[in-house]
């Protein structure tokens, strides 16, 4: 059994400070963007992008470049190509995403088998290495959080209306195609930056779980988005403390904490619904 380490001694370590800050920023960003992604039914998009990003990482290793800097254009390209394919092929989006995601994952794993130095780091790529997050990555995460907050405040009305009803949004002057695309590109960039910390397999959990937990208990939109970001950030910090204290992998620890938060929200929602009439039961 691993000896638990005291929180104070962990906080004194510089890499731990970076990791906690990384967990907080990644979690808050995931919660913030996830709140809209879940309503727009883009949960699978973040999952597919996460898996496809492995190909971007392998490309970076083969080219000898910083994976984070390669992943950003890779993710944006992925978002644009998939959006165009969904629009033009008229195939169901989930089927199309599955094709892109499984094929890029397959190519990435094949390419990885040729890269000697990356063989040992496959697990880190899959499950993340938040303890190894750099100041550059932290700076990018902070910048992205600011951009997301600014864009979210600017496009709040547009995102809600286009999610509810495209015709209604157009009738009120919302530039629907532009806002659809901008959101997907922003989501892609966040996923690309967060991959290092969270890992390919778990990134969608960061986007989807806090948002779903918040949706279960929220009674208005601003509260929903704020709570989703807060739950994401808390899950990130608590998960990392748990990970460091018990020497467990960081990405999975965060996702397990987020799952516990989700289950708590589910219990609260089920409790508050008892005795209430079913939706739409009141007279018209």
């Amino acid at each position: 059994m691993v000896e638990p380490v005291s929180i104070a001694s962990l906080w004194a370590l510089p890499f731990m400070q970076r990791a906690l800050l990384g967990g907080l920023l990644t979690g808050a960003l995931g919660g913030l963007l996830g709140s809209v992604a879940v309503l727009r039914q883009l949960s699978f998009f973040s999952d597919a992008l996460g898996h496809a990003a492995l190909l971007g990482i392998v490309l970076a290793i083969l080219l000898g470049l910083n994976p984070t800097l390669v992943l950003i254009p890779f993710a944006v390209l992925f978002a644009l190509v998939v959006s165009a394919l969904v629009r033009r092929s008229q195939l169901p989006a989930d089927a199309l995403l599955n094709i892109v995601y499984s094929s890029s994952l397959a190519v990435a794993v094949l390419a990885l088998s040729f890269v000697q130095e990356a063989k040992g780091s496959l697990q880190q790529l899959l499950f993340g290495d938040i303890l190894g997050v750099s100041w550059l990555e932290l700076g990018l995460l902070a910048l992205l959080l600011l951009i997301t907050l600014a864009y979210g405040a600017h496009s709040r009305r547009a995102q809600i209306l286009l999610t509810l009803d495209e015709s209604l949004a157009l009738s009120r002057g919302v530039a629907v195609p532009l806002h659809r695309l901008l959101f997907v590109v922003l989501l892609a960039v966040v996923v690309a930056i967060a991959i290092k910390a969270v890992g390919v397999l778990l990134i969608s959990g960061f986007v989807v779980i806090p948002a779903c937990a918040s949706r279960l208990v929220s009674r208005n939109f601003n509260g929903y988005v704020g709570l989703s970001a807060a739950l994401g950030g808390c899950g990130g910090v608590l998960g990392l403390f748990g990970s460091a204290a018990f020497n467990l992998p960081s990405g999975p620890s965060v996702v397990v904490v987020q799952l516990l938060i989700f289950l708590l929200a589910l219990l609260l929602a089920m409790g508050s619904r008892k005795g209430k009439p079913a939706p739409g039961a009141s007279p018209g």
Partner: peptide, 23 residues
Amino acid sequence: AYMPQSFAVPPRFPLSVAEFVAL
């Protein structure tokens, strides 16, 4: 102003009536 055909709100869509009208 335009009222669209078959306006349906997904279950648990976290938007209050007052917030929607303000939009």
